[in-house]
């Protein structure tokens, strides 16, 4: 009899180094559950990026390399083009994906690369100590926006999942959150669809996961998880592009 709850096979047994209340751990676990369910652990190649999640290789048990800051989608493109039989995915933060690496991310999506990208959006540069990121909310205080992000001088946060959804090459684009059990279940579905976009050769699969950074948000873990609801007001949850579901339906 299978156990109702167990550690995913593709999740390494290393204890997470993440701060209390950080949701990288939940996101890692969901990615691993999807990898297990799709049976792709032994044909996956992951690209870890720069930021707290650079250590992805300590947690997810698949072949993996680091890419320079922002270049994960370019590295994933090279890997996938060289070995189309591999399931190639990137796991990046909002700074990596949407600031320094936005061109690589955008162009890979526009080309319709058969890769999957997970962007953890916690509205801040966590690893470097809490500076403003492209997705820092208007009014949000960070170490480089001490008076709060003023859109007049710092501009507005881009809605990446919506932007990517406009591209022909994108087969799946969704924004999810992890601050309630229901949302976690939905997040897992989205991650699975973003992988299926690749497996079924439909195009670029993308999931933006709203996440917490209690330390740099200067909150306790419980308040941080609650604060994600505030983030959702600016960054609405939803599926903005889905070629996967109709494709799977037609198969039936």
């Amino acid at each position: 009899m299978s156990k109702p709850f167990q550690v995913p096979k593709s999740l390494k047994k290393n204890p997470f180094h993440y701060c209390p209340g950080c949701q990288h751990g939940v996101a890692h676990r969901l990615v691993c559950e999807v990898i297990d369910e799709l049976g792709i652990q032994d044909k996956s190649l992951a690209i870890s990026s720069i930021g707290c999640s650079v250590f992805l290789y300590f947690y997810i048990d698949v072949d993996m390399t680091e890419a320079p800051h922002g270049r994960a989608c370019a590295a994933a493109t090279g890997a996938k083009r060289a070995r189309p039989d591999l399931m190639v995915f990137t796991y990046q933060g909002d700074g990596d994906f949407a600031a320094i690496g936005f061109n690589e991310s955008f162009q890979a999506a526009a080309r319709g690369e058969k890769i999957t990208s997970i962007m953890i959006n916690n509205n801040i540069y966590g690893m470097t100590g809490g500076q403003a990121s492209p997705t820092t909310l208007p009014g949000q205080k960070t170490t480089t926006t001490p008076a709060g992000r003023d859109p007049e001088t710092f501009g507005y946060p881009p809605k990446i999942a919506e932007i990517l959804a406009t591209l022909e090459g994108v087969a799946y684009s969704a924004r999810v959150a992890l601050n309630s059990p229901k949302r976690i279940v939905e997040a897992k579905k989205a991650i699975k669809n973003a992988f299926l976009a690749q497996i079924k050769n439909l195009g670029f699969g993308f999931v933006e996961i709203l996440s917490t950074c209690p330390i740099n948000w200067k909150m306790d873990p419980v308040s941080a998880v609650k604060a994600v609801d505030k983030v959702i007001e600016y960054f609405p949850l939803g599926i903005f592009k889905d070629k996967v579901t109709p494709f799977l339906k037609n198969l039936k």
């Binding site: 370019a74 590295a75 090279g78 083009r81 060289a82």
Partner: peptide
Amino acid sequence: AESELAAINMILGACAT
């Protein structure tokens, strides 16, 4: 590629395999 930055990182990904 869309830039030299992307080109050399595509190389990185391909070489990794």
